[in-house]
Design a protein around this nucleic acid. Structure first.
Lengths: 336, 336
DNA sequence: ACTACTTATACTAATATTGAGCATAATACG
DNA sequence: CGTATTATGCTCAATATTAGTATAAGTAGT
C-alpha cells in the first residue's frame, strides 16, 4: 500500500462517553442529557458550555466529555475528572466498555469534520440524590429497551408486537439460506420457539431489531417530536447502542464479580440486594436460593442490626465485605 | 471548568495494535515484530515503510497499524485491512480488547508529540505458514510470561525466584496495612499459601510484578542488548501489558464461547483440541472429562475419518459444527 | 388477643454437574 | 506375542442447582 499518511490520515477527535448507572427505588436508572441538534454536534466541547434550549427538537443523549491529553494522564482519569466535576459525587466503579469509531456516528463528520472516536465507559454510582449536570435526568433504562424487562413475566410488547414483526421479517427473506439465518438469529436472541432467553444479549437483540428496521436508531435526523414508541425511546447518535452494550456487560459481570455492591447503600437486607440484581438482569430469582448463594460466597456479613420496615418479619441488615474484592476471584451473584 | 478546548486539547493520534495468536505445534504463539527505537517512535506510519535494521538495539513489539478515518469505515475494518494485507491470510476472529491511552506510553510524546491512543485487538488465526510481515516472527507467548505455563507442573521460576522476591516485597512494606494489602494481592494473583491459581489473572500478575519492580516494563530505554531474563522478555512500550490483557481475555473467553476452534485446523482429534486448550490456559485437563464435556455440548461432529498418527489407538477426526455459533450461547470448553 | 397477611429464614428432596479414576479397545513396535 | 501408547466407555462420589415445604417473626385490622 505505502499510502502517504498525511493524505489519508484525516482528523480524529477522541471523546469519552459515560453510561452512569444507579439504582433508584429499586429501578435501574441511567443518566441522560437532553440535547438539541446544535449542542449535540458540538458535543466535544465541555458540557457546561451548553446552554439551555427549547423543549422541542430535543434528544436524549448519554453524558459526553472531552479528552484532553495535556490535562489527563489516562483516559479513565479524564472520564472521572469531568463526571465527578459535573455530578458532584464520586463514581466508585468505572469500567471501560468499548471504543466506537464507526463512520457516520456523528453527522457532523459528513460535512468534512473529523472522525469522532468515543471510548465508552460504564460507571456505577450509589443513589445519592440529584446531580448537578444541566438538563440531566435519571431515566429508567427499560424505557429504551422495554423488551428487556421480564420481572413481570414475558413483556407484552414481545408477544404482541416484536415477535410477530420478527416472524414477518424472517418470512420476507430473499432466499432460503437467508431465511434460515434470520430465523436462527431470532431464536437465540429473542428466545423464539422454546429457545431460552439469554439476559446478556441486549446488544445483539437491539442490533437484530435495527437490522429488521423495527427500531429507530437516532433521534437527531427528525425535527420536532421526541421519537418514542412502543418499541422504546430512541437516543442521539449511536447512544442507544452504547447503552445496550453497557447493560449487556453489566448483566454478565454481576454473575462473576461482586459489582452489584457498588450500587448498594452501605447496609441493606438480602431482599433489597436481590431486588437490585433482579432490576439489572430484568428477571426474577428464587429467594431462598439467592440467600444461600450470597451467604455461601461470603460476600456479606450481618451488621447485627435489624430492618423493621419490611412489611413482615424484620430482616437482618448486611454490609458488603469489601475484603472479598481482594480475597477470592470468580464470585458474583450468578444464579443461572 | 470551561477550559478552552483549543488550548488544552493537544493532539491525539489513533493507532491499532493487534495481538495475533496462532497455535503452532501445540504451542501458543504471538506475532512479534523486531524493531529499533527509530522505527518504533515512527510506528504510526505504515509497517511497510520500515526498513531492515541492525540486529543490536532491537525491540520486540506487537504489530501496529495506523487508523485512517478517511479510508476505514470502522476501527475493526482498519485493523483487518492492514493485518490481512501484511500477513497474506484472513484473520477470522477479531475482538476488541481495550483502548490504551496512558500518558507516557510513547516516549515520543514527552518531546512534545501527540498523545498516542491505541485500540488493542485480539485476532485468532490458523496456523497457515509464514507471514509476509518484515521482521515478524511467531514467538511462544510464555517467553514473555514464563510463570504462566503450568503444563509441566508449577513453573520452577515461581518457587525459586518470583515467590521469594514477592515475599521480600511484602516484608518491605512501609506499614502494617500496606503489608496486609500486598500479601492479599499476592495471594490472589500468585496463589500464595494454598490460594488456588487463577489462570485468567495474567494482567493482574504482570502488574503486581511491575509494581514490585520485579519485571522490566520496556525495552526501549536501554540501548544495546535485548532485555530478557528469567522473569521473561520485555517488549516495546506497553506491549507486554497489552499481551497480558489478550492472554487473560482469551483464557476467560474459551470457557464460555467456542473460540478455540478459530485456532484449529478444519479437522482434528479430541486430543489435539485438548492440547490447544491446555496451551492457551497453561494448565492440564482431565482427558476423559474433557471428551465428555465437548461431546455433551455438541460442539463437534465426527467426520467419520480416522487419524492413525497418534502413536497408539487411532482417533476419530472431528470438525467444528459452525452452526453452534448461532445455536446456543454460553458454550465453551470450561472445565473448572 | 386473635386473625390474616407479609416477609424472613431454615431445611429438604430430586436432579444435574463435576472431579477422579478404572477398565477396555485398538493401534505400533520390537 | 508382549509391551507401550493412545482412544474411548463407564462408574462413583462429591458438589451444586432447582424447586419446593415448613416455620418464624413481625404488621395491620377487628
Amino acid at each position: 500500500m505505502n499510502v502517504n499518511a498525511e493524505s489519508t490520515n484525516g482528523q480524529v477527535v477522541i471523546g469519552l462517553n459515560a453510561v452512569i448507572v444507579a439504582i433508584i427505588e429499586e429501578q435501574p436508572k441511567v443518566l441522560v442529557v437532553q440535547h438539541t441538534s446544535e449542542t449535540l454536534t458540538a458535543q466535544h466541547e465541555t458540557l457546561t458550555e451548553r446552554t439551555a434550549l427549547p423543549h422541542d427538537n430535543r434528544h436524549e443523549a448519554l453524558p459526553f466529555g472531552p479528552f484532553y491529553p495535556l490535562k489527563h494522564r489516562t483516559l479513565e482519569a479524564g472520564l472521572r475528572s469531568w463526571v465527578e466535576e459535573q455530578t458532584d459525587h464520586d463514581i466508585g466503579y468505572v469500567e471501560q466498555l468499548y471504543t466506537f469509531g464507526n463512520e457516520g456516528r456523528d453527522p457532523r463528520e459528513e460535512a468534512g469534520g473529523a472522525r469522532l472516536v468515543s471510548v465508552g465507559y460504564l460507571a456505577l454510582v450509589q443513589d445519592t440524590g440529584p446531580t448537578a449536570i444541566e438538563n440531566a435526568v435519571w431515566q429508567d433504562w427499560y424505557r429504551f429497551f422495554p423488551w428487556e424487562d421480564w420481572r413481570d413475566g414475558s413483556p407484552i410488547i414481545l408477544e404482541s408486537d416484536i415477535i410477530p414483526a420478527l416472524r414477518q421479517w424472517i418470512a420476507d427473506a430473499e432466499n432460503n439460506d437467508e431465511q434460515k439465518d434470520r430465523y436462527e438469529r431470532a431464536c437465540i436472541t429473542f428466545g423464539l420457539d422454546d429457545t431460552p432467553w439469554n439476559d446478556e444479549l441486549v446488544l445483539e437483540r437491539y442490533e437484530l431489531l435495527y437490522e429488521a428496521s423495527l427500531v429507530t436508531e437516532r433521534q437527531d435526523n427528525l425535527n420536532g417530536e421526541e421519537i418514542s414508541d412502543h418499541r422504546g425511546t430512541a437516543m442521539a447518535l449511536d447512544h442507544r447502542r452504547i447503552l445496550a452494550t453497557a447493560i449487556g456487560r453489566l448483566r454478565g459481570k454481576i454473575k462473576y464479580r461482586p459489582v452489584v455492591f457498588e450500587l448498594m447503600p452501605p447496609t441493606f437486607t438480602l431482599l433489597q440486594l436481590q431486588k437490585v440484581v433482579e432490576a439489572l438482569s430484568g428477571s426474577l430469582l428464587h429467594k431462598q436460593n439467592f440467600r444461600r448463594l450470597i451467604e455461601k460466597k461470603g460476600l456479606v456479613e450481618a451488621t447485627g442490626k435489624i430492618e423493621s420496615q419490611t412489611g413482615g418479619r424484620p430482616a437482618s441488615q448486611f454490609r458488603f465485605r469489601r475484603e472479598v474484592l481482594m480475597e477470592r476471584q470468580a464470585l458474583g451473584v450468578r444464579q443461572n
